[in-house]
Write a protein that binds this DNA or RNA. Sequence first.
RNA 1: GGCGAUGUAGCUCAGCGGGAGAGCCCCAGUCUUACACACUGGUUGUCGUAGGUUCAAAUCCUACCGUCGUCACCA
Length: 883
Amino acid sequence: MKAIELEKAYDPKAFEDSIYKQWVEDGNFKPSTGKGKPFVIVMPPPNVTGILHMGHALNNSLQDTLIRYYRMTGRPTLWIPGTDHAGIATQNVMERRLQKEGLRRQDLGREKFLERTWALKEEHHDVIVGQLKKIGCSCDWDHERFTMDEGLSKAVRETFVTLYERGLVYKGLYLVNYCPHCGTALADDEVEHQEDVGHLYDINYPFADGSGHITVATTRPETMFGDVAVAVNPDDERYKSLVGKMLKLPLTDREIPIIADSFVGIEFGTGMVKITPAHDPNDWECGKRHNLEAINILNPDGTLNDVCPEEFRGLPAEVARDKVAQKLNELGYLVRVQEHKHEVGHCYRCNTTVEPYLSQQWFVRMRSLADKALDAWKRGEIHFYPKRWENTYSSWLENIRDWCISRQLWWGHRIPVWYCDDCGHMMVEREDPTCCSKCGSKHIHQDTDVLDTWFSSWLWPFSTLGWPEETPDFKRFFPTSTLVTAYDIIFFWVSRMIMASLEFTGKVPFNDIYITGLVRDKKGRKMSKSLGNGIDPLDVIDLYGADAMKFTICYLAAQGQDVLVDMDSFKLGSRFANKIWNATRYLLMNLEGRNLVAIDQSKFTEVDKWIYHSLNENVRKVRNAIEGYKFNDAAQAIYDFFWNDFCDWYVEASKLSLYSGDDAEKDRIVSILMDILAESMRLMHPMLSFITEEIYSKLPNTEGKVITASFPEYRNDRIHAEEAHLMQCMQDVVRGIRNSRAELGIPADKKLRIVIRPDENDCLASFMAGHVDLLKNFTNAGSVEIDAEKAISVEGAFPVAGQGFETYVFVRDAIDVDKEIAKLEEEISKAKALLEGSEKKLSNEKFVSFAKPEAIEKERAKKREFEEKIEKTQKHIEVLRSF
RNA sequence: GGCGAUGUAGCUCAGCGGGAGAGCCCCAGUCUUACACACUGGUUGUCGUAGGUUCAAAUCCUACCGUCGUCACCA
């Protein structure tokens, strides 16, 4: 046959896009119709707020690796892509855009605003999809979903109404976390606590009867207009007698009582706490215990409302804080101000300080849902990788609180609740009502709030498959197999998916959860816009190619560990892809004039057996690693096999045959090389998808595409442990000779005379004897003599110590004898130390009686080895001394 | 403060009960019929500290120190 030509330089740009297009056109990402158990992943849907970052690249690279691997094992495989409407985040992005046009969303009105936001969604969606395709994600685009598309909206509505019917959704007036900037309530876990430096103000509150005053401590003096009491600890001897007395609230004409409540700490501050039920969670609870009124002092935008004295109305809370303090100071109420560090809640979307805010909101009662999720985990139906996240999962579920799901936003699923304007009747409906179901009035209106984004995301594993309909997809592909996501959304998303799934389908949504680390920069910092340390996946692909990116990520993704990268990190994958390319190019060149023949195991040399043995071992390693989510182990195994074993040793060894005059042998070796190359492509495809497909299509011994080829199997007929050992001995000889050449400063092109004396081991001796030419090639020797009988004089030869053989290099004139002796002596002292340790162990009765027999036998072998090494080296020194 | 992770070669990290490893970096040599994004060889370590368990500990346990993450907070 003719040689097959490959472009001289590896250039991923030349084929990645067209290969992706071909995969899609050929339907390679669709689940096969096979009978095996489907392997299914739902992609964590990226937010349509922007474009993908390295975190997404990590996440999707790992998913793609899993999907491609399982596809090749023959299981019907489905990877469902999609995007998330990301309520608050997207609305914020839209509002920022409007701001640039000098507009507020109120200027547009709800309908117009939503229209614009849908357009924004489309814009970002297209970019995101383009990125996923560049990365090479083999997801089934015909299954793509969006959290606000028709089917998913139906699922959201169904779940809301069902939960309401089951008494698990309720509405009520509660103190919730409220972001004044976003203008909406937040769930408890959407609040991030950060340490802020504030002030602790001590303020005098006079007794109503004019008999003096007490002093309260507060960090937020502006909330005093909502004070309804001052509390002390009932056991506080200082204040016991004051309980029940009335105080005059400064700056107002209200009077409030002193009450006793055990939540007050005696030690902290002044031991007296002002109680403001509408603006502090503890006070809210305290207020309920004492039947106190809750006075709301804030407008929804976080400014002080009409309850407050006129001069403070309309001021943002933080501004009012200083002003109130100043006023109190002028009037002599302010005693002192101290700096005070404390944790303050911030909005996870805009980082604004969150206000506890009294309002009507919708909640999901979580206890029973959480218990089901805990039980499923205890029954062993879900496994986290790494396992430690199970603690996070369980402790959150054990301490779960009700979930505030209403958001005062426009972008999202509108709450399916209607109110009658005439009789006030409330309707929770699956279909839009046209009139009041109680009084028949047509004057009805829908709740203006929308649902928390996570209220649609938590249905993702089954809503994407058609639920609530019993679709064929749902029946075939649910529950899914594995979820791959980052640890920062275990609460928001993972736990809730499990709860929703159990509640609505009775099954867990997936069995395995692989929690990835985060992508950070080389200094370990999170990648962020503000630090400017982010890397754009598309830039990586542009510079190095998608394969280099995916492989590097896999190589660095030790189970669950954070991945620290900079642009240069991806050279690792790039170099490897380049190596694969060049090795292939070389092998294909050598097809010129050759005929491929059937692989005949009976004609295998020891070296052939060794390479198949190594391939086999690595196949097993890769399979185990991927199935156990140890991506780095799998990446390392293919790297080591292909580069070290195949390229550095086997291909080098094959040159002997390749450049011989024996046509039959040349055909034979080329056939084996092609066989291993093709199998390597299949082995590497999950992590190096494009280059393997490109090469696979050029190989003369392949049919079809690698993406749909079968993954290599571990085969018993490829186990050749004996030959693997022989090869290792040969590598030791070769390394020893090369080493001495380098150490002694002998030029690489100087042909040496070498004598090898295998130690009373016929197998090794005949192996070495059979591969003299190979040894010559590997060491650039002029002659290699195998001297099992120890008949050849080695006078004047430099000895190289080795395991199971002795090697002599004839270099008498080129050696610095003293230097070599010193080096060998150091080797002896090292070996002696090891021997001593070994002897100590073996003479220890306890070791001999307690240790496993294998361990003892191994130790004995080691001891013998050390002894031999010392003896040999000793001899070598003597030889050197005789020079 | 609770819980958790982590501390191994200059850097990034594997290893997690029986002789300290990889990649990058560094040094020396080589354009040896594919690859200088290559080849060959080499240097580098109180495996955080202190105890304990064990015949044996980088590996298991305890405490402490450092770093990071989470959850919860007393105005």
